[in-house]
């Protein structure tokens, strides 16, 4: 095996840390299996949402409950957080100082929390307008799908905080590095789920 080869998804450490690179492959593959099973859960909630689109029982519809402005802001924030996390992974791989590394992670965490804040504000507005989960099948399926992604982002933020503690305490040993690779995959995966959410849920609902 050569040093610069690609053995698993995400950033590969072969060029700078061959030992961790050899260890990473089965761990990362196992994490992919988890991500794909998570994708199946989301896909089925999308399918349920699709079948429930018409089930509004005279209550709020997609066009009246969604707003395009905040959704666009949330999307840009989440995309930017993926970019900053990617730069953080590259900094980790190429041995940047802890200050640089933690700086990128802090930026990612701030963007993740900003996303969650905007999303919670959206939900609060919807609920204030009477679009509660118990109102109709359509709203039940909406509140099963979109907040589940929010809970994943929250879990990612907590994991990021744990890693920001682990990096200065344990240093960059193989375990910390592989955890960071996995967190990177998780974070980028959530972005892909969000693409599906803003296209299928928000934009489809807002098309006139």
């Amino acid at each position: 095996m050569s040093a610069g080869d690609m053995r698993h998804a995400g950033i590969n450490l072969g060029t700078t840390d061959q030992e961790t690179h050899d260890q990473a492959e089965p761990d990362i593959f196992g994490f992919w299996i988890f991500l794909m099973s998570d994708a199946v859960i989301f896909a089925l909630l999308f399918a349920v949402y699709g079948t429930m689109l018409g089930a509004t029982v005279g209550g709020p519809t997609a066009a009246s409950a969604y707003k395009i402005g905040p959704t666009f802001a949330e999307t840009v924030i989440l995309l930017t957080s993926s970019f900053t996390f990617g730069l953080g992974s590259i900094a980790m791989k190429h041995g940047a100082s802890n200050r640089v590394l933690l700086g990128w992670f802090a930026a990612t965490l701030a963007l993740g929390l900003a996303f969650l804040g905007l999303e919670l504000h959206d939900f609060a507005t919807m609920i204030g307008d009477g679009a509660v989960p118990t109102r109709s099948g359509f709203l039940s399926s909406f509140f099963a799908l979109v907040p589940l992604h929010g809970v994943h982002v929250l879990a990612g933020c907590l994991w990021l905080i744990v890693m920001m503690v682990q990096v200065p305490i344990f240093g960059r040993d193989a375990r910390v590095k592989i955890n960071l690779l996995r967190l990177g995959l998780f974070w980028h995966f959530l972005d892909i789920v969000w693409i599906a959410i803003f296209s299928v849920v928000y934009l489809q609902g807002l098309i006139r």
């Binding site: 095996m1 080869d5 690609m6 053995r7 698993h8 998804a9 995400g10 950033i11 590969n12 492959e25 993926s82 990617g86 995959l185 980028h188 995966f189 972005d191 892909i192 693409i195 599906a196 296209s199 299928v200 934009l203 489809q204 098309i207």
Partner: peptide, 26 residues
Amino acid sequence: LVFGLALVQMIVHLRCFLHVSLRRSS
């Protein structure tokens, strides 16, 4: 159009952020 753009964007994410490629040794 929206669904088409979403599909392209998912592929971009897989390729550029998750580094999944067709030319992989594994």
